[in-house]
Design a protein around this nucleic acid. Sequence first.
DNA 1: CTGAGATATTGCCATAGAGCAACATTTTTC
DNA 2: GAAAAATGTTGCTCTATGGCAATATCTCAG
Lengths: 189, 189
Amino acid sequence: MHQILKTYFLDKIKVSDDNLSNISSFFKEYSFGKNEFLLKEGEVCKYVYFVTAGCLRFYSVNTDGIENTRYIAFEGKFGTSFTSLITGEESIEYIQSLEKTTLLAIRKDDFYHLVEKEPAVNVIYRNILESAYITTQKRIYDLQGSDSLERLRWLLKRQPDVFNRLSNKVIASYLGITPYTLSRLKINL
Amino acid sequence: MHQILKTYFLDKIKVSDDNLSNISSFFKEYSFGKNEFLLKEGEVCKYVYFVTAGCLRFYSVNTDGIENTRYIAFEGKFGTSFTSLITGEESIEYIQSLEKTTLLAIRKDDFYHLVEKEPAVNVIYRNILESAYITTQKRIYDLQGSDSLERLRWLLKRQPDVFNRLSNKVIASYLGITPYTLSRLKINL
DNA sequence: CTGAGATATTGCCATAGAGCAACATTTTTC
DNA sequence: GAAAAATGTTGCTCTATGGCAATATCTCAG
């Protein structure tokens, strides 16, 4: 089992080596180059991913072609297109590698099987859902509660990786502004 | 047990009458008038609520005094201030009754006890988290992806109760616009 | 019922951020 | 390592929405 996934579990819950190796047996390792697509709008999401190196970007494109990035999963984080995974409907999101990325993937049915059979995964899934919810919630609060400069400062302080590792284009789409505006804001940092 | 809560469970999962009555024994009924506060910013949320009549509004107030409503729980819906409930931190949200409201409340520790001990509640909680996440997600997509008129039309179509039962002030804070703008938009409906 | 307070509407002006275009810089590719 | 492509910057202008103020309408307590 990948050490980084093991650490993820052990940091959060007590679980035996036997259970851990059962769990890990359902994950399969994959590698991606920069800017490859793991999921496109209109496809159904069938995997849960755990990033071991690099990062994944989860974003959607509206009718005017504006991109909106909702989440960046860096190494050591789970990520999936929840809405599509859960409902089985077509995804409105794209999942894209932004860097050379390696990850562990588990199929949807295997994942939900583990949620039922392995208490550790039940708890972890709850954890993931809870924190996905909290993150998203804070994001809405943030999006509506502050102007763009405040949001940029917040990002810089709380998620420096996003600021330091990603392109302006991606950062702007994460903050919900245009790259033009981001460029102008940086003068006032 | 309240029929409406029973229906909620039975609609989603197979569960025996015995388990249902064990579950319901942890809920206590409360009544509120119009515009009462169940939780204020800075307090820690200790309950999960299930609305049996009326409705609850979940909202936050930013530093400029702008209100942002994230969710309205009408009768037959669960609602709580997840972020505070889960983390035990002070809430950034207010919970307020917008109409004469009756509800069933369960204490946080009893709730998580049931999540562990009653498989039905484990599944229901997962359900609630999943759909809270999906709703929130669609909301972000919506907030960033469409202009205010489109959002208003979406609301009218998808959540007519919000439009029909609540004040302009609340609707505006739900759409992330000012009551002035909402007033102006209604001309173009 | 009545009247005070809350809520909603609308004219007017202000402003944050969008978007184009031109140019500069960085990154990728062969 | 040079050319091409992508990304970033900045001047200028435009637009959607904000916000005040005056007025109109609703609503709820006595």
